[in-house]
């Protein structure tokens, strides 16, 4: 028996399709227009992460300006990735008076559950121009596998 979700039924047979479309549209609206400042205001999570999937690997990137690689601690526990670190921008000079202070300092920690199983022995991280890139290889069971069709 084929498995068809309620919302995926053909429009003609689904009287709620139009409502579903409106609901999806409203969801899009409430998500905002990708306005970054808006995102920052909404959440208190630091750092912001981007995750890309490239075939057999995952790429996690984060903007971490002003943080030395030695102040950054990345760990992987089963399929939870943790990024910890601290940023220190205290001035050592004397007689400093601030006009503006927008850059935040302090320590941060973020953990996230990865969507796939990861090979823990093959994780690399690099920090370049304030951008952190973590490359995680998928575990063998998580890799895409081609299924051959046997012609009879």
């Amino acid at each position: 028996m084929p498995f068809i979700r309620f919302t995926e039924r053909p429009v003609l047979r689904n009287p709620w399709a139009e409502f579903e479309r409106i609901r999806k549209g409203l969801d899009e609206l409430s998500r905002g227009y990708g306005d970054r400042s808006n995102w920052y205001n909404q959440t208190n999570v630091y750092p912001a992460l981007n995750i890309y999937e490239q075939g057999d690997r995952l790429l996690v990137t984060a903007e971490l300006p002003g943080i030395a690689a030695t102040d950054l601690n990345i760990s992987l526990e089963s399929d939870t990735l943790s990024i910890q670190g601290k940023r220190d921008n205290m001035q050592t000079e004397e007689h400093v008076s601030y006009h503006r202070r927008e850059i935040e300092a302090g320590s941060f920690s973020r953990s996230l559950a990865l969507p796939v199983k990861i090979n823990p022995d093959n994780v690399t991280a690099s920090l370049q121009n304030g951008i952190l890139t973590i490359t995680l290889m998928k575990a063998t069971e998580g890799k895409p596998r081609k299924i051959d069709i046997v012609a009879e």
């Binding site: 970054r36 001035q91 503006r100």
Partner: peptide, 27 residues
Amino acid sequence: ETYYSPMVDIYETPQAVTVVADIPGVT
């Protein structure tokens, strides 16, 4: 293309004014 206003610190010493700006990813 999107333009962001970077976060800045501006501080003054008797000798100079220093502007510090976060611009990750810019070479």
